[in-house]
Structures are given as C-alpha cells and as structure tokens.
Amino acid sequence: MFFKQLFYYLIFPGFLFASVVGLLAGWVDRKVSARIQYRVGPPWYQNFVDIIKLFGKEIITPPGRAFTFLFAPLMGIVSSTIVASFLGLVLLNSQSIFFADLIIVIYLLTVPAISLIIGASASANPLASIGVSREIKMVLGYELPFILSLAIVIIKAGSLRLADIINYQLLNGSLALSWSGAIGLIVAFLCIQAKLGFVPFDAPEADQEIMCGTLIEYSGLPLAIFRLTRFILLYTLPLFLIIIFLSGDIKLTSLGIKFLLILVAIILVKNTNPRLRIDQAIRFFWKILTPLAVLGVILAFLGK
C-alpha cells in the first residue's frame, strides 16, 4: 500500500510522468514560438539537456541565507508534483482522495508563486526584489478572478470534489458548453497564462528589463528545480483546465487533443502579445476579468 502510494507520487502520474510530459510541452512551446518567428527551433530533447546541464553547474548561494534560498525551490516542486498526482489519480480512478480536494488544489497551485517570492527575497538582489514586488502584485491580481471562475464550476456541479465535477460533466456534457462555463473557461485560461508567467503577464521575470527578475541569483541545481516546476505546471494547469471545464469526454485520445489545443492556444497568446506593465496587468485582472467572472457566477446561479 505504502509503495503503491509512493509509486503514484514519484513515478506515475506524479513527478516523473509530469516532468517528462511537461518538458515535452515546453519543447512544443519553444518549437511553435520558433515557427511563428520563421525560425527552425530546438530539437525535441532540448529541455531535457538544459535540465541535465544545470545539474552539473556550480551552485552559488547568498552568504548567510543559504537555507531559505535552497529550500524555496523544493517547496514549489513538491506542491506542483502533488497537484499533478492528484489530477492524474482523479482521472485514473475517477474518485477523489479527499473531501473537497478542489480547495486543496487551489491552495497548492499558489505555492509555486510563493516559493518564487520567498527564494527571490532571500537572494537580496535589488532586481530580484523588483521581481518579487511584481510577483506579489500579480498573485493578488489573478487569484481573485481565478477563484471566481472556479466558483462557477462549484455552483454548477454542486460539489467541491474533482471526481464529482468530472462525473457531472460526463452526464451533462462539458461545462464550457454552457454560457457561464464558457465565461469561466476564458477567465481561467487568462489566469493560467499569468500563473505560468507567460508573456502578457511576465513582468516579474522580464528578461530584457530586470534580467530574469526573481530568478536572477539562482544557478545550477536550484535553478533547474525552478525550471522543472515551471514545466510541471505547464502540464498540470492545462490538465486542470480540462478537468474543470472540458471533461465531457475523458478518453485518452480526446484528453490528448484537448491538452494540445489548450497548450497551443497558450503559446499563441504568448507570442502575439506585448508584455503588460504591472499596473496594466492588475487593471486587466481586476477591472475586466473580475466583473466578467462575477457575471459568470450570476449566470451560474440562474442556471444558464
């Protein structure tokens, strides 16, 4: 029993599976981006090589703060792995492990951002602190519409359990086909873009402006862990979106097709938008997405 649990969390559908799929999804991201810019793009194993290379590099820690600095990336990767295994197990067994596991998933999905904030603050770099302040504002911005969009699902399915949400959609068709569900899908999709730190909302990590911001002081293994966390999220978040809004049909092929479609949609949004300033991003989340999500909640109450 214990070993079975360990297998679930470490190998399938947990850490190993999630990172392999995530790294491949990361390659799809780089390849599609390259094709959009009329480039050839890297070979499929590029992300694996990047991670292996980072394992072999020197680790530089800020003096006196090494523990927090090295502990933060672990926090992020553990929580994203747990979410990946939860979602995988729900799809495999179609029964939830916990009562109200949706709430736990919402909490755990915030932890990677918090780990980034803690780690970057520990590095005491001025550019990292700019990144941290932007990341905090970004979290404040996207969490509200994200949770409101999930509230639509909770109202429609009448349950906090992922398994019940899937069963509801298996019986009644995908939630995204109803008006409130469609609104929820759009809002959650844009929030996921911000959770992944992709381009319209990548102000915390702006490469050209504050030099990778939050990640600026990281090198070697901890950097590899942060990147791996990002890749696991690139697998987990689209899957979460599918489970919540689009699980009218959860055969393996249709899951794969939906995953690829959402992934490519994320990449297209990433490649066709300029970076928003942090105040613009927050205005977008609070003044446009939040009222939209509230409208969705009202529609869901009316049963639309």
Partner: peptide, 11 residues
C-alpha cells in the same frame, strides 16, 4: 542558433 540550444540569457 537556438537550433543548437544556444540561448541569450539575462543573468
């Protein structure tokens, strides 16, 4: 040069 995995990085 991203074909060969070369990336220009900020830090």
């Amino acid at each position: 040069v991203e074909r060969f995995g070369v990336q220009l990085i900020g830090s």
